[in-house]
Simulated scan of single mutants.
Amino acid sequence: MEIEISSSMHLMYVSEIQQEMYDSAQRRGTGIAKRSIEYLSKKISEGNAVVATENGEWVGFCYIETWSHGQFVANSGLIVSPKFRERGAATLIKNKVFQLSRDKYPNAKVFGLTTGLAVMKINSDLGYKPVIYSELTQDDEFWNGCKSCVNYDILMKKERKNCLCTAMLFVPENITKNGAAHTQPEIKYSNEMSQTDIEYPVQNSLGEFQMTIKNNKKSPDEKESHLSV
């Protein structure tokens, strides 16, 4: 499997990627905000995405977006083809797109919204922390991207303060402590998406987050098809 920063050579996969994003959202009942072929093609052509392939077939995809004049970066639309799930592809793609974000925008905060427990675990390993929505970009254009999600009405009724997604944030200045560089944890590839003990954040009535351990064995469809990352 090859995981590459995108280029025009990967445009051949854009229709399949967009369709799988839509199909996956429909199966889960929650959704990746719908993106047009033109939008995804632009991300791919500009090198603002990561594409995984194997023997000429697309394996997975994720892209980056910037908000608030480059103060925030989002890794969005993480998706893995059903044929290649349960092989650790999501973790490898997420690590690659996270590094791309850090290389292009080293001073930006990296954030994500997701309903996927596996993505929360990956983000936690990369140094993200669960936060309330007010810690994210307040750029209207970002939140308008949620309009195609089935949960948009919930988001608006709650005045963009929370929704079904968990917000997670990586802050660059937190990567060092007492002058020591932050070291990323070793990536485990063997069936990592079938872990049954997953630590994930739960928001209490005060808007505070606590970490909870729960046995949660997910189906193959739920493991590596995510809202945003």
Rank of each mutant, 00 (worst) to 15 (best):
A49V: 10
I122G: 01
I32K: 01
E38K: 10
S45R: 10
R27S: 10
M9P: 00
V73Y: 03
E135V: 00
C149M: 14
C149S: 13
E199V: 14
Y200H: 15
K109W: 01
L78I: 05
K188V: 06
L40Q: 10
G70Y: 11
N144Y: 03
G116F: 05
L155Y: 06
C163D: 14
T115G: 05
N216T: 11
Y189H: 12
Y152F: 13
W58N: 02
S81K: 08
T176G: 04
I64T: 11
G56R: 05
V131Q: 02
V97D: 05
G127T: 13
W58Y: 12
N215I: 14
E159I: 09
K96W: 01
V73K: 01
E173Q: 09
I122V: 15
E208R: 12
R160H: 13
K161F: 01
T176L: 09
I132D: 09
L227R: 02
N144I: 00
R27A: 14
N216V: 09
V150E: 11
K188I: 06
G112W: 03
Q71H: 07
A108D: 00
L117V: 13
C163A: 12
S36R: 08
K188M: 04
R85S: 04
G116I: 09
S81M: 00
E65H: 08
Y22L: 13
K129H: 08
S76A: 09
S68V: 11
V59D: 03
W67G: 00
Y200Q: 06
N174A: 14
E159W: 06
L11A: 08
V14E: 11
G116C: 09
S6A: 12
C62N: 12
S219W: 03
S15L: 10
G179M: 03
S68D: 15
F142S: 05
I64G: 08
S190L: 13
N55P: 00
K157D: 07
L126M: 11
I93C: 04
E222K: 14
L100K: 04
N204T: 05
G88F: 01
H182K: 07
N48I: 12
N48S: 13
L164I: 15
M211E: 05
H182C: 05
W143M: 05
F111Q: 05
K42S: 14
A90Q: 04
F61L: 06
V150W: 09
V202Y: 07
T53S: 15
T66P: 00
E222L: 15
C149E: 14
Q210Y: 14
